[in-house]
């Protein structure tokens, strides 16, 4: 008679184990580690492509950088480090529906340091991705109102675009 009780417990324990495991893995709690990379990859591509499209390659030094380009945005910065509206329009048109933070870093040869400023200072979520692009602008391009005026050497800038889904 005792034998029956132990067997029944074994059956019930196995069934319970099975049901629990089945429900656990069928639920949305368990996410494959690859999933976040899928949404990241699309956003990363958008960031990369956006910076590439906005990078304006001049065919002659007489050409003026469009305001909407990375170079045009940097050249027209003043002490407030606020990007011009044309650039913001072009950027937002391309990243469409994603939220973003924009940072600018540059090499300061006088102090041998890399300085950075947030041009659009929004707080990213933990799922944010980043893309960046290096541009070089000759010192003669900057107007007197620019914080980069009069450096006397070509300045290397890194434009960093951090994107996330709101």
């Amino acid at each position: 008679m005792k034998a029956q009780a132990f067997t029944l417990e074994g059956v019930m324990a196995s069934l319970l184990l099975l049901v629990v495991l089945y429900s656990f893995f069928q639920s949305t709690i368990v996410i494959s580690p690859m999933w976040s990379e899928i949404t990241d990859a699309q956003l990363k591509l958008i960031g990369y492509d956006t910076l590439k499209v906005l990078d304006y390659y001049r065919t002659s030094s007489d050409e003026i950088y469009p305001n909407q380009s990375l170079q045009g945005m940097i050249v027209h910065l003043n002490s407030t480090f606020k990007p011009n509206q044309d650039f913001i329009y072009a950027l937002e048109r391309m990243i469409y529906l994603a939220d973003y933070r924009l940072e600018l870093c540059w090499a300061n040869l006088s102090t041998n340091a890399v300085e950075c400023r947030a041009l659009v200072d929004k707080k990213p979520t933990p799922e944010a991705v980043a893309a960046s692009r290096i541009v070089v602008i000759d010192s003669g391009e900057f107007p007197a109102s620019s914080p980069f005026y009069g450096r006397g050497y070509p300045i290397v800038f890194e434009v960093r675009l951090i994107l996330w889904r709101p």
Partner: peptide, 17 residues
């Protein structure tokens, strides 16, 4: 016998999972 049957059921379940 109880232990054998219980163990068998457990092993079958484990292999199934």
């Amino acid at each position: 016998l109880d232990m054998l049957i219980g163990l068998s059921i457990f092993l079958v379940t484990f292999i199934f999972i």
